[in-house]
Design a protein around this nucleic acid. Structure first.
Lengths: 123, 123
DNA sequence: GGACTATATTGACAACCTTCGATATAGTTA
DNA sequence: TAACTATATCGAAGGTTGTCAATATAGTCC
């Protein structure tokens, strides 16, 4: 009972060029990088913990509070805060020697919408 | 007109320990890593483009199609497909010499819900 | 069988990211 | 003024990630 006839060879013969030109992404490389950056900033556990602490403490969270909340040293906390700030997700208010951070809830809502819209298209 | 009285020193004096123990993250390090991993897999432009192509071509997308859709070489395409598959976002069906990939829309919807829920808590 | 093809894996290299000690900056207190 | 404090920045070390040429694997065709 050996199969002599072509097995289920997927409607296409060997060597036959198979690539539809229609099979391109709707995203340009530039757009794809932009969306990837959105996800990137959220893809680190320390940054997620920092955002979480800021989100559940309206205003008034200083760096020493944040430092106590995550398992890395102060320069690393400052580094991640800088990235979050560069992404526009948090804001800083300096008072004397202290720096108080807060989430920008509007920016976060906008980001959430962008990411959700992206994922909706995939599923 | 020099200010002699304490400037707006933010209700706390220098050297006074400022960290509320109440200011902890609701996420354990382990949970934070898990959520970060969710974002991580989506944080690369090539992977986003691959997902996009797969999402708009129901089933039947072979690697050579995908290779034509993104600006990297075949081994790199295989590499990213492997990561997407490890994350459970896509599936592979092998037919003879070809490999056909498709998105797992259920998995993507689940991921979207997890990520959205996370972001809702922040904003 | 032998020549050929599609995809996966390996291994090397470069680029990037994370972390921290040390230091700089700038404000406070006395 | 000098001693002290909170945060930011610098620079180096180590780790991870992305990429590709080369090769391996496994299937097809004649």
């Amino acid at each position: 009972m050996r199969a002599i006839l072509p097995v289920v060879t997927a409607d296409r013969a060997l060597g036959e060029r198979c690539c539809d030109p229609g099979t391109r992404s709707q995203y340009s490389s530039r757009e794809a990088v932009r969306i990837a950056d959105d996800f990137e900033v959220l893809s680190h556990p320390i940054r997620l913990q920092l955002l979480d602490v800021l989100a559940r403490n309206e205003g008034r969270v200083c760096v020493c509070d944040l430092e106590a909340a995550v398992p890395v040293k102060q320069p690393t906390v400052s580094h991640h805060l800088k990235l979050l700030r560069a992404a526009g997700l948090i804001e800083r208010e300096k008072v004397g020697l202290w720096a108080y951070y807060r989430v920008d809830r509007t920016a976060l809502a906008t980001l959430r919408k962008r990411l959700t819209d992206t994922l909706v298209q995939f599923a």
